[in-house]
């Protein structure tokens, strides 16, 4: 059975659930990471092996809200992984990289070269290709890992 044929056997409810979860993962990833970036620019340089040194970052409200949104990202990502393959989730949610680069350019005024624009185009092609495959190809959990 080809991948396209398998995709057609998914119920409309399952397809809708996968799409909504994918949107939640991408949106919370973009918003959370942009907020973290804004906050870390305010807090300044932190490079340390001790988690305690990072606590001062939590004095910045952008960091606090960014972390809360990334908790939502983590929960929706886990929910999506319960229903879909890792090799489906990874490329499809890669659209977040495109949105983060565009947000970095238009909101944080990061520079985007022509090479980066080309990269954004290639990632978008990869996302479209992955979206054409069935969300799940395994029947149950990987028994040998349990």
């Amino acid at each position: 059975m080809s991948l396209t044929q398998e995709k057609e056997t998914a119920t409309p409810g399952a397809v809708r659930k996968t799409r909504v979860l994918t949107l939640m993962v991408v949106a919370s990833n973009v918003i959370g990471n942009v907020m973290l970036s804004l906050g870390m620019h305010h807090v300044g340089r932190i490079v340390s092996a001790s988690p305690g040194d990072y606590m001062r970052a939590f004095s910045d409200p952008w960091i606090v809200v960014g972390v809360c949104i990334l908790v939502i990202w983590m929960a929706s990502d886990l929910a999506l992984l319960s229903a879909a393959d890792l090799t489906f989730v990874l490329p499809v949610t890669a659209s977040a990289y495109v949105l983060i680069a565009l947000t970095g350019h238009f909101v944080l005024h990061d520079r985007i070269s022509s090479t980066r624009w080309f990269g954004i185009m290639i990632i978008t092609l990869g996302v479209i290709l992955a979206e054409e495959t069935p969300a799940r190809t395994t029947k149950g959990p990987p028994e040998h890992l349990l």
């Binding site: 991948l3 393959d85 092609l125 990869g126 054409e132 495959t133 190809t137 395994t138 890992l145």
Partner: peptide, 20 residues
Amino acid sequence: LKEDVRSRRWAAAILVAAGV
């Protein structure tokens, strides 16, 4: 994980990695 990774998914992963 024993996922069924065929040419389209490999192509998607390679395109995303190259784009990144």
